[in-house]
């Protein structure tokens, strides 16, 4: 108990330090990198609910991201609603879209689900790009109002970063509590084996829908924050590349853990900026690193190092126990021909 308490306190302090430290960053470039990374981290957490905890693939998360951002953009610019109201509507609406996407697709598994969600992303992007009257088409939406929180103007990067880190911390906490709750246990059960879960009396369909809704809602939240920060949105941000890069982030970091997606975001953001030193070879190296990490550490960076560190400090028994908890065959397909 004391150990857990110590752990919690440490994390709380870390979050608070991060929030405060964000006010002292003087470098505007770093500030932008951090803010965009924090938004990506929120996205990664939302994908992790599906991929990591429920065992569902999503290759169309940029769709939810875009729906959230465009809800804020459209409502704020065309109907002059306040940013916060827009944000609430955006979160609810993208959650609803998650539910609607989930209704037919929860019956699909593995690759089929992957392609279906990929299709969803392409469709959303196509609509954003072509529904000129509402979304402004390829020109996007400009002049979205920057939010103000208790008379603190968030258009200044530092305040925005502070706000977003606070949001991220809260979100991490909420997800943590959720995972430890019966809902989380049901998810992890149906991730391991759906039929067993069904037999145990878990309403598989309902729990999957819940995961889709929550995941969509959180991605929409990230979208709303993105719109508020950039004050400009266009369909290019919400394309297939975005969907792919989020799921890559989650899996590289270690899906099914909370620290994994966060670590993945941090590492990939850093990598992305650092590789700018290589000019033209940048994306070539990026591809090589991606493949290398997947090949050598398929379980994800965070679980890998966690196991390494634990095996350094404790007896062998504990390591074995941890190893078995990572199931290598979690995502089997429905139709195996």
């Amino acid at each position: 108990m004391t150990k857990t308490r110590l752990f919690y306190t440490a994390i709380t302090i870390l979050c608070i330090v991060c929030s405060i430290a964000s006010l002292y960053i003087q470098n505007l470039y770093l500030l932008r990198v951090f803010i965009l990374a924090a938004i990506t981290a929120i996205l990664a957490l939302s994908v992790n609910i599906l991929v990591g905890y429920t065992g569902q693939i999503s290759l169309g998360h940029a769709g939810f991201f875009g729906i959230g951002a465009y809800m804020v953009g459209i409502l704020n610019v065309n109907y002059h609603l306040s940013f916060w109201l827009c944000m609430v509507i955006a979160v609810l609406f993208s959650g609803l879209m998650g539910l609607i996407l989930g209704l037919p697709t929860t019956k699909l598994k593995g690759h089929f689900l992957g392609i279906a969600t990929l299709g969803f992303g392409v469709i959303v992007n196509g609509v954003l790009n072509n529904w000129m009257q509402v979304t402004g088409g390829p020109q996007g939406i400009r002049d979205i109002q920057s939010p103000t929180l208790f008379s603190i103007p968030l258009e200044y990067g530092n305040y925005f970063l502070g706000f977003i880190v606070a949001c991220l911390s809260l979100l991490v906490l909420v997800i943590y509590l959720l995972i430890k709750s019966p809902v989380g246990r049901a998810w992890s059960c149906l991730k391991q084996d759906e039929i067993t879960a069904y037999v145990t009396g878990i309403h598989v369909y309902r729990y999957k829908l819940l995961a889709f809704t929550l995941s969509g809602g959180i991605a929409g939240f990230a979208g709303a924050l993105f719109a508020g920060y950039m004050t400009f949105i266009s369909p290019d941000t919400f394309d297939l590349n975005q969907s792919i890069s989020i799921i890559t982030t989650v899996i590289l970091g270690g899906s099914g853990t909370i620290a994994g997606p966060l670590l993945g975001t941090a590492l990939l953001s850093f990598l992305n900026e650092w590789l700018r030193n290589f000019d033209e070879l940048r994306l070539v190296i990026y591809g090589v690193i991606l493949v290398a990490v997947i090949v050598f550490i398929p379980e994800g960076i965070y679980p890998f190092f966690k196991n390494k560190i634990i095996s350094l400090f404790s007896r062998r028994k504990r390591v074995n126990q941890l190893k078995t908890s990572i199931d290598p065959h979690a995502g089997k397909d429905a139709v195996n021909e």
């Binding site: 308490r5 919690y8 709380t12 979050c15 608070i16 929030s19 405060i20 006010l23 002292y24 960053i25 003087q26 470098n27 505007l28 500030l31 929180l149 208790f150 008379s151 603190i152 200044y156 990067g157 530092n158 305040y159 502070g162 706000f163 606070a166 911390s169 809260l170 906490l173 509590l177 430890k180």
Partner: peptide
Amino acid sequence: FKKMFFMMVSLLSVLILLLAGCSAPKGA
């Protein structure tokens, strides 16, 4: 403990932001 922890963090996060508004450095 969890409940307390939850409340503590949310309170603190809001507090930080309020503080930030009053006494933060000018920022970048």
